[in-house]
Amino acid sequence: MEQFMETVKEVVFAVLPITLVIVILQFTLIWLPTEVFIQFLIGVVMVSVGLILFLVGVHVGLLPVGEMIGSTLPKSKKIWLIIAVGFILGFVVTVAEPDVRVLAQQIDNVSGGEISQMVLISSVALGVGIFVALAMARIIFKIRLKWLLLGGYSVVFLLATITPNTFIPISFDAGGVTTGPMTVPFILALGVGVASVLRSKSSSSDSFGLVALASIGPIISVQILGVIYG
């Protein structure tokens, strides 16, 4: 119960500032139609309830399961299995990410259906899956994070020279939306579980950096998509 109340406080303090700003603007500058303003207030309540339920679900289900999967996989002593599961989980969690779907819908509307939601979601999920697998390999083979980040962003900026201009901002937005409420908790928990078993002495440092790596994958995959469509 105590954890539930803490979650409620977190959501209230997160949603309240933007709500107050909109209310102040409503009665000073913008004067939205009453119907629209009421819809906004109803939306605030629905978002707040949804966030509370979602965060409770993350703490109750996603985090423990992610850590258990991460700590169980190394016991199989099969490197390929750890990397493969990392790829699969990275892919499916990204497909379920709400932020990715919002971006895909916006791109679909702007492009007039030329770039469909499914194509963009699949591309982003594929990029995340590959780089989560790479993150698992980093933990296993003790690869330093800075070299992977340097290599990843080198590829990003090289691809930017041949990617159509319209796809470059989309690619970086794709990298941002993958750091959403669905992907981040699960990937971090997975990394904590794997690192705690494989390298107990440095598990705290190995557990992190996964999200940084995962966000590179969508940038590269969308840039490649741009080269194909371009």
Rank of each mutant, 00 (worst) to 15 (best):
N165Q: 07
V11Y: 06
F13E: 03
V102W: 01
V184H: 01
I22W: 03
I140K: 12
P218C: 11
I38N: 02
G61C: 11
L145K: 11
L73N: 08
L32H: 02
F54I: 05
F208Y: 14
I22D: 00
Y229I: 14
I115M: 13
I24W: 00
V119F: 12
V21C: 03
G86M: 12
A212M: 12
F141G: 06
T163Q: 08
M46G: 03
V177C: 12
G180R: 08
K75C: 02
V15W: 00
A160N: 05
A84Y: 09
T179Y: 11
P181Q: 14
G127W: 11
G43Q: 08
G226N: 06
W31E: 00
S76L: 13
L62R: 05
L89V: 15
D99V: 08
V60A: 10
W31Q: 00
L55G: 05
L190H: 02
S202P: 01
M46D: 07
P164Q: 06
I30P: 00
K9H: 06
L148Y: 04
A160G: 03
A174N: 13
S48G: 08
P185D: 12
G226W: 02
V119T: 15
V124E: 03
V110P: 02
T183N: 15
I42C: 07
P218N: 10
I139V: 13
S76F: 14
K146T: 07
I143Y: 06
W80S: 14
A214V: 12
S215M: 13
T28S: 08
P185C: 09
F87P: 15
V58F: 02
L158C: 03
T166D: 07
L190T: 07
N165A: 10
F54L: 14
L81R: 13
S116V: 06
F208R: 14
F40D: 00
L53K: 15
V102Y: 05
G151V: 07
V222K: 14
G57Q: 13
S202V: 10
A174L: 12
V21H: 04
L126Q: 04
